[in-house]
């Protein structure tokens, strides 16, 4: 376990929380560290204090959802997002951020006006890697038992697509990807999260 670096934090350094109930926490932590920010695990509502941004990582959405419910994190995450601080959800995290979820009975935060369809591409044997189309040129995207985002509302900005489907979306301070930016060295998705946090600080 990498230490979360609670000590020796320079005043200007951004601090990103990663929801650590279940899933791929370490790759996000490494990506945040590469981008020059500090990170901390979030397992309880009080862990959200003093954070500039938040990541809901990939993992199993049913497992993460039950874990959030048990420790009372749903309400705290909703309040965090309402405060205007940026939130990034990847894969299972994107499911949890959607307005509506199909295919599995999980409670979602409704931060982005889309419908997320769990396991829309199939099982692990249908997982794939490709280059997404959008303003981030040459963005290599890894999809693992990925959800699909349907029916983006008028306030949703589609930042990247694969086969016409949105794979990277933004609504105000909420960002979501159905692929795994933490598993590639690209860094631009995490940079976008930190950019939103910086803007809010200024």
């Amino acid at each position: 376990m990498v230490a979360a670096g609670r000590h020796s934090r320079p005043a200007a350094e951004l601090r990103v929380g990663i929801v650590s109930v279940q899933g791929a926490v370490q790759p996000h932590a490494a990506a945040i560290a590469r981008a020059g920010a500090a990170w901390a695990q979030v397992r309880h509502p009080e862990d959200l204090d003093d954070l500039d941004a938040l990541i809901l990582p990939g993992g199993e959405s049913t497992t993460i959802s039950k874990g959030l419910e048990r420790v009372g994190l749903y309400e705290a995450l909703e309040a965090f997002a309402r405060s205007g601080r940026p939130v990034l959800g990847t894969c299972a995290g994107a499911i949890l951020m959607a307005r509506e979820v199909e295919g599995v009975p999980v409670r979602s935060l409704g931060l982005i006006d889309v419908t997320a369809v769990r396991n829309a591409y199939g099982t692990q044997v249908d997982s794939f890697a490709t280059v997404a189309q959008g303003e981030l040129e040459g963005l290599r995207a890894i999809f693992i038992r990925a959800p699909r985002l349907k029916r983006p509302g008028p306030d949703v900005e589609v930042l990247a697509r694969v086969d016409g489907w949105p794979v990277f979306v933004r609504q105000e301070n909420a960002l979501a990807t159905t692929f795994h930016p933490e598993l590639t060295p690209d860094g631009r998705v995490h940079a976008a999260l930190l950019e939103l946090a910086k803007k809010r600080q200024q």
């Binding site: 370490q26 692990q124 890894i142 693992i144």
Partner: peptide
């Protein structure tokens, strides 16, 4: 390995 990463903590 990506799927194995997703199962961590579970």
């Amino acid at each position: 390995v990506g799927l194995a990463e997703m199962l961590k903590g579970g």
